[in-house]
């Protein structure tokens, strides 16, 4: 059964890494409902991307290590539902 997952990826901020992630989801035809990516406030060389993905638990389990094996990816967090995604957005710095 498909449902929403929050998927957050922490990675080095290099050209192409976001494309690699999106490709991995597209290739498995995983629907990306929302995407938010940002540079780290204190270190522009690192960043993170958060997704709300609509897919099955099994697909989530299989795609997670495929994302984690990208060279620039440090770690990922996955959880059911959208709460973690919105919590991630909340802690992003707001432009004053």
């Amino acid at each position: 059964m498909k449902k929403d997952f929050s998927f957050i990826v922490y990675a080095d901020n290099s050209f192409g890494i976001l494309n690699r992630m999106i490709n991995a989801f597209n290739r498995r035809r995983i629907r990306i409902r929302t995407l938010m990516a940002s540079e780290d406030e204190h270190n522009p060389h690192t960043g993170s991307a958060a997704f709300i993905l609509y897919t099955t638990e099994e697909m989530m389990r299989k795609v997670k290590p495929q994302i984690e094996k990208f060279i620039e990816v440090d770690h990922t967090q996955v959880s059911e539902g959208t709460t973690a995604f919105y919590a991630y957005i909340q802690q992003l710095p707001v432009e004053k």
Partner: peptide
């Protein structure tokens, strides 16, 4: 070439 080859490289850099 960077975007063309993303899915078929372990890593790439320009």
């Amino acid at each position: 070439v960077m975007n063309i080859t993303i899915p078929v490289t372990k890593w790439s850099v320009q």
